[in-house]
Structures are given as C-alpha cells and as structure tokens.
C-alpha cells in the first residue's frame, strides 16, 4: 500500500527534473533573442532581464516550497501508512497553535517580500510616469488580423500626412528605448514581444504607451496574445531591430519612397508599399 507514495514521489521528481532541464534548452526556457544559437539564453531587453531574474527568484522560492511540501507528502504517505490491525495506532492530536503561527508568518513574509521586491520593476515597465521621454517610434493600431504600424515621417510627428504606414512590420534600433502608442480599431488584441517580455493589451477606445528596448539586433516576432476572432492565430508581426540609427533611417527612407511611388517600377519590389 505504501508504494502509492512512490507515485507521488515520481511525479515530484519528474516535475523538478523538467524545470531543472528547461534552462539549458532554448526551446523550453524563456524565449531568447535572435542569437539563441550562440548560447544566449537570457532576455535581451532591460525589462526582460529584470523580469527573468524575478522569474528565477520566484522559481527558486516556489521550487524550495514545492520540494519541501512534496517531501513531507511522500514521507507521510510512505511512513504513516496503515499496516493492518497490528500496526501502530494513529497519533491523536488536533493541531498546534505554534505550528500554525509559524507557517502563517513565514510564507506571509516571503510573499510580502516578493510583492515589494517586484514593485520597482513593475513601475518601470508600466507606469506612465516612467515612459521614456523620447520621440515616439510609431503608433501601432491592431485590427483583425494585423498590426497596422504608423511611423512618423520626416517631420517626426505622428498623425501627419507624411506618416509611413506598414503592416506587420515593426522596426526599431538596438540599444534605444522604443516608445509606441498602442491602439485597437476593432476588438481587444495584445501586443506581445516574447523575446523582450513585453505584453500589453490593445483596448478599443484607449491609447496606451508601451516602451521596450533590446541589446541585440536581428529579427524578432510580434505575437497577438489576446483572442481577437477567427484569425487570431494569424496575427503575427515581423520585428526587425537595426544595428544603428543610420540603418533604420535608411530603411525608413526607402519605405517612404516606396509609399510615395507614382510610377510603375521597373522591378516590382513588392515588399514595402501599401
């Protein structure tokens, strides 16, 4: 009968094993940047690094609690099993005030610690007062089922005639804070950059600032994380992080040129114009 405890032990060991293995597998761990093959398994954004370290701290704390409780459970189910009429009797007690106090105060302290410890990170990634004082990169309007991204043109201002309109194509520069204004034109969507740990719902009727950065140039993916209708899964965006501002400006110029095209091109590039 006591061997049932081994089932619970096995489940706990496998669970711990899975989480012990996860950090060394790029497909299991928190999504990394574009240079994942080079062994960079950490996040590549400043918010992401803080979030990852918080994640690891919580993982360790919960891991310890998990192992502790499972050991107790397995121990109890192994050693206190009924051994028939001749076995020992169950001990008779109704509880212990001291224990109750201990296991109320210690978890409470840990939980309050976690809660307070992360306040700073939360404030720095979401509070509007923490938004970087930079020229906005773009206005991102989610619609079923694409991201309409509107970059300020030469005048550097949004909502003017020289804005560049792109679909599913977000560009910004490495090492610079990118600030976008997130809107929705129909239903709820959610702007999710897994590699940068950024997520924010796009809400009909609201304009929400979102900011992020990264220290690795390359290609990333933009995900819609809030159910938005039949084509929800299709709502993927390409993200390109440019090495330098010049590279970005160059791209912007060529895209603007394509957008103002008034002739049939000799070669149809077919990549940027709307």
């Amino acid at each position: 009968m006591r061997y049932w405890s081994l089932l619970f032990a096995l489940a706990a060991i496998i669970s711990v094993g899975i989480f012990a293995y996860a950090p060394i597998s790029p497909e299991w761990w928190l999504p990394a940047g574009p240079n994942v093959s080079a062994g960079h398994l950490h996040s590549v954004s400043s918010a992401g690094k803080q979030i990852d370290s918080l994640f690891v701290i919580i993982l360790l704390i919960t891991g310890i609690v998990f192992i502790g409780t499972q050991v107790a459970l397995v121990y109890a189910t192994y050693f206190f099993v009924d051994k028939g009429p001749n076995g020992r009797k169950a001990s008779y007690f109704h509880g212990s005030q001291r224990l109750e106090v201990i296991w109320t105060i210690i978890p409470a302290a840990i939980l309050v610690f976690i809660a307070l410890y992360q306040m700073g990170t939360w404030a720095s990634v979401k509070f509007r007062s923490a938004a970087p004082k930079v020229q906005p990169l773009a206005q991102v309007t989610a619609r079923q089922f694409q991201w309409v991204i509107r970059y300020p043109g030469e005048d550097g201002k949004l909502e003017t005639k020289d804005d560049l309109f792109m679909v599913n194509d977000l560009h910004f520069v490495k090492g610079k804070q990118a600030l976008i204004y997130l809107k929705s034109s129909d239903v709820l969507h959610s702007f999710f950059l897994p590699a940068l740990r950024i997520k924010q719902d796009a809400v009909p009727g609201l304009t929400i600032p979102v900011w992020f950065d990264t220290d690795q140039a390359g290609h990333y993916e933009l995900v819609c994380a809030e159910l938005c209708g039949w084509g929800h899964y299709k709502m993927r965006g390409n993200v390109t992080v440019h090495e330098t501002q010049e590279e970005f400006d160059q791209w912007l110029q060529s895209a603007l040129k394509e957008q103002s095209r008034d002739q049939v091109a000799a070669v149809v590039t077919g990549s940027q114009g709307r």
Binding site: Q146, V148, V167, G231, M235, R236, V268, G270, G273
Partner: peptide
C-alpha cells in the same frame, strides 16, 4: 503578390508577408 503580401486593408484579407 501585393494583395497576398499586404492584404486588403479594410477587408478580411490579411497580410501574409509575416506568415
């Protein structure tokens, strides 16, 4: 190619450039 790549804005035809 333009229709498939960029979709038809204002309709349900999505842009397939990213897919």
């Amino acid at each position: 190619k333009k229709t498939i790549t960029h979709g038809l804005h204002g309709t349900s035809m999505p842009a397939f450039e990213a897919l």
